[in-house]
Design a protein around this nucleic acid. Structure first.
Lengths: 242, 242
DNA sequence: CGTCGGGTTGAGGGTGATCAAAGTTTGTGG
DNA sequence: CCACAAACTTTGATCACCCTCAACCCGACG
């Protein structure tokens, strides 16, 4: 069931009834496989469908005229990488796979139709896009006001938290198919400096990183270093919903 | 008519029919005045209403545990500073006035009701929040990948563009009630360095700044310096709407 | 006239950038 | 399965952008 992860993702933040769930499951979705480093959407393009990650990792990024890339967010299975395209005509950034990816594409027409018929689905999606924005805000704080080590710590803890939230693996060990260059572009640093900061975390016993497997041996201390507060992830708000 | 600016703002990005407009005009709204540097909303609070700027400037910000403030966005008349509160229970950041402000407060209950009855209003608001997110993304790129001068240039051009878009004054001259400390917090810099960068722009004939009046004598050159591309503002998308 | 917030200036220091090169791993084709 | 290339990681040396600290100036306002 390709919509399983998506449903899980939406239900973390919204109370959907059985009919809502059925309607989402029935959405026509084209599933495709992509290799790593493949574009899922490009800046300037007019999208006609939304892209849901079923398996694998992707990131959103912008490249300045001077050729520098800035990664805006990392995405895991269950997440919609371009939901904004539903109401914003043209893509203002790129979406690229980080690993091999299985992705589902849902036409804007069918998605718009269901949002107009089922207000709760519309609100779940709207809320999802608001959480997206909340993560961008924290990303701004991270890049603007935290030194490099703390910045990297925050990125790691955020990803660990989000992976755990979706019920994949434990929070302290996970796959992260990002190169040090990717991490640098995510943090607004250079790859050389990221390498040095990684070594510092290793020395402090806060990070083990072989291949693309991350292990966080002392999550509490890492969270402290990151001054991580998960408020901005707006977890489990469904219960208190109107 | 206190909803005039808001309507103008929404209609830039959405096609509202006469009934939609009337419904928005009829929204019960409590108007209040605030001095400069007053909180409009606080991190951790559960909001029950949305705050619309009728006159004046405000900003959104987060403060890290180490006491550093990062400004996330600047807001002008017509903008809703906490629309996300409609679907996200708790505020993940602060909203503060920058100048004297006249603000209108609309209860979540009436706002939710109208979004459920009028899909086009819901979509206009949803789209508004998506544009918000697009501005956060550009803010990330600005802080993460542009040197200080270019960063300041970008901030100035963005504000000039958004003020012009709303039909206030010309794009090259406008009021900006931010201190150099505020600008520093917006750009992820220190006030001392902001001061030096301002002087550099002055020397280059790109900026005049007396009191809180900004004059941009050579907007094209400033845009070039900022490598400013207004794509992310998603201007006038209403026409091509579904 | 004194205080206070904000702007300006100077000296010195450090975080992170740049440049360059050497390892190491990954992946691909023979 | 090996050979080779390409991509990624690591290390070193040097540099610069921006920070820190500190003082002084200026205008607004009581």
């Amino acid at each position: 069931m390709p919509t399983r992860a998506l449903l899980k993702r939406l239900q973390i933040n919204a109370a959907l009834d059985a009919d809502d769930v059925e309607t989402i499951k029935a959405l026509p979705m084209a599933v495709r496989d992509f290799p790593a480093h493949a574009p899922l959407a490009r800046e300037g393009a007019r999208s006609t469908q939304c892209c849901v990650l079923i398996e694998g990792f992707a990131c959103r990024s912008k490249t300045t005229f001077t050729g520098k890339r800035q990664i805006l967010s990392i995405h895991i299975a269950g997440e919609i990488v371009d939901l904004h395209g539903l109401h914003l005509q043209v893509m203002d950034h790129d979406v690229t796979t980080l690993s091999k990816v299985k992705a589902g594409f849902i036409g804007h027409d069918s998605l718009l139709a269901i949002t107009r018929e089922r207000p709760m689905v519309a609100e779940a999606l709207w809320r999802y896009s608001l959480r997206d924005a909340a993560m961008f805000r924290e990303w701004i704080v991270n890049i603007g006001r935290r030194p490099a080590i703390n910045r990297l710590a925050h990125l790691l803890v955020e990803i660990a938290t989000r992976i755990e939230e979706m019920g994949f693996a434990g929070g302290a060990r996970f796959e992260l198919p990002m190169t040090q260059l990717d991490i640098a572009d995510a943090l607004g640093l250079t790859p050389v400096h990221v390498n040095r900061v990684i070594q510092e975390l290793r020395r402090d016993g806060l990070l083990e990183l072989h291949k693309h497997t991350v292990l966080l041996p002392d999550l509490p201390r890492l969270k402290q270093l990151a001054t991580f507060d998960d408020l901005y992830l707006h977890r489990s708000e469904a219960l208190s919903d109107v």
